[in-house]
Nucleic acid binder design. Structure first.
Lengths: 341, 341
DNA sequence: CGACGTTACTGAACCGGGTAAGTGGCGCGA
DNA sequence: TCGCGCCACTTACCCGGTTCAGTAACGTCG
């Protein structure tokens, strides 16, 4: 089956290539009768304009890219990215944009991918995740003038648009909730400390814990993996001055923490309360179901896609603050055991 | 920053465009000295050939596609696809191929996406998952002559290559294992019954259960979601003639099943044994850790990527049978309670 | 010494769209 | 009736690579 080209249509319709191009792109310069005839022939032949040819003459590749900078085993369980991608899709598909993804292992590789994509004109723009302090990717994207949207923040991204949700109110809500239940010694298992949103959460956690007068409030850092969550939790639960509640920065570590508690014979929620950041089906699947911070990640992705498409179109879009996460209390949180109050 | 083109290099080197093309593609027709000069200039300018221009004159778009035909909430927890993608990447990246993905909701949409991609020359080939009996996508791909590799099988895909692992030995291994432990009444919670691999598993399950003389062995079907797994498990555990072991077709349903058992006060593994198909970090995260069927999905993806690249290169590749899954026994399987033997 | 082959290039066509500039023909107003 | 403007096209060139058909220079061998 030969791919129909604009020339095939022109020949069939008895007009020139240019007329076909005008007709199919809804531009003036062809009569309605001719336009309809051309459109009908195009449909009959199942014509789709070659993306390559279009990208070559026009500007747009009609594609955007995202790199995934996580080891494979974390991508396997981290549901965040898949949900983000689901969120992108509706927006992108509606405008005929494709999503190109590439797994990389370091920020340096990520930069190399951006450079290559830009050189190859493979994408019109990129989504950037996992913003770090003083992020080396930002100046590169700016120099390349590659449209980009940073998912996460707030941080210094210069002219590059950010889509972010403020994590501070969410963690404040959780700590106040635990405090009201009577907890006085709580801990938090965070993600990689170099990530900006980890730092935001840590700062907010410390502030609110001081405000409500927690006896002890420690943040320890792990790597978002189940294994990391297990090790860290085991250390917290077997150490002196065991906390009565733990907040985890993702659902995988929270589930791992729950399993460790059960293994150690520590009852959840009787002896230990657990809160997971980023509610996912996983959180409500385990027993007891985990109290979790929910935000609409797909919606977050949809926002980001709209921002990126607008940036590509040349609009000067600002930052966008998406809805904050809020607590969904389930069976993993309760007042601390009597002796601990 | 202007993208350097082959003409820029030609001008700098004082040669023609053609010479640059020959030099950079390692073809005869330029002296070694000239070639080295051209390559040096290209590197200095940070040259990447425009993918669009290349796709337009040559044939290859240097991209392959995959559609994801699952609702967003399942994609969020189904780790299979992310691990498959991780497996693709090493192979694709090494050859400079990009992966384009699109979320669709029906097989009809999926076909439309294939047609569009083909028409737009956006991809050189596609990965096809979730093979069904008498699959409508197969004839379309054949008519379009769009290179494809089916991930899964075995089924009738005509000339289209399949990468598959035989599920029959795996389920046989599990049933024999449970039988040896003393189980006589087992159940299986399958995935969507229209999927070919679900049918394969069902047939093999029935056969081996008959062979080892199970008293009762029922397959019920669900939808891979946690919710589906919960509902189905609750029905199995509260009905007459409760099974002493359940095999789940994915990890999400297995974890959901475990939570239902715990909620009902049915001890795992004391009163109920659970086996999950597709081991994932999730399986070992919960308590007790789940006995699971492991296969190397990333490796599976790598195989598929190699097959697809070979198909695109014009090689006539046959089907490829990847390694079968095998059982990793963990804490969720044990002999049935005494009264049930 | 001249025919021939090889090497190292050049020039131009080509892929398939987009688009600026040009061209008839027609209607309309002065 | 002439001139102007507009409509509905056509022509031609552009994008940035690839590739094929030349071609000049050089070596080789009978």
């Amino acid at each position: 089956m030969k791919r129909p080209t604009i020339a095939d249509i022109a020949q069939r319709a008895g007009v020139s290539k240019g007329a076909v191009s005008y007709a199919l792109n809804g531009r003036r310069g062809v009569s309605d009768a001719t336009r309809q005839r051309i459109v009908a022939i195009a449909r009959e032949l199942g014509f789709n304009p070659s993306n390559a040819a279009r990208a070559l003459s026009g500007a747009s590749a009609c594609a955007v890219g995202m790199t995934l900078c996580r080891p494979a085993e974390i991508l396997a369980v981290e549901t965040f990215f898949m949900r983000l991608i689901s969120g992108f899709e509706a927006e992108l598909a509606a405008r005929g944009f494709a999503l190109t993804i590439q797994v990389v292992s370091t920020p340096a590789d990520e930069i190399a991918v951006y450079r290559r994509w830009w050189g190859e004109r493979r994408v019109d723009g990129v989504f950037v995740t996992d913003l770090r302090g003083d992020d080396v990717r930002i100046p590169v994207l700016r120099d390349l003038r590659l449209p980009a949207v940073v998912i996460g923040g707030p941080g210094d991204t210069g002219p590059i648009s950010q889509v972010w949700s403020d994590d501070a109110p969410a963690i404040t809500e959780v700590v106040r909730y635990l405090s009201t239940l009577g907890h006085r010694r709580i801990a938090r298992v965070g993600g990689m400390p170099e990530l900006l949103h980890t730092q935001t959460r840590t700062r907010a956690f410390e502030e609110v814990c001081a405000t409500v007068g927690m006896e002890s409030a420690v943040s320890v850092f792990s790597d978002y993996t189940g294994e990391g969550g297990s090790v860290t939790t085991r250390r917290l639960l077997t150490g002196d001055d065991r906390p009565t509640a733990i907040i985890y920065d993702n659902d995988v570590m929270a589930v791992a923490g729950l399993a460790v508690a059960q293994e150690l014979g520590i009852g959840v929620p009787a002896d230990l309360s657990i809160v997971a950041w980023d509610d996912s089906p996983l959180s409500s699947l385990v027993h007891p179901p985990l109290s979790a911070l929910r935000r609409d990640i797909a919606e977050y992705g949809a926002h980001a896609a709209r921002q990126l498409l607008a940036t590509i179109a040349g609009d000067n879009v600002g930052h966008l603050r998406a809805g904050a996460a809020h607590l969904i209390p389930r069976g993993s949180t309760a007042p601390p055991p009597a002796g601990s109050r």
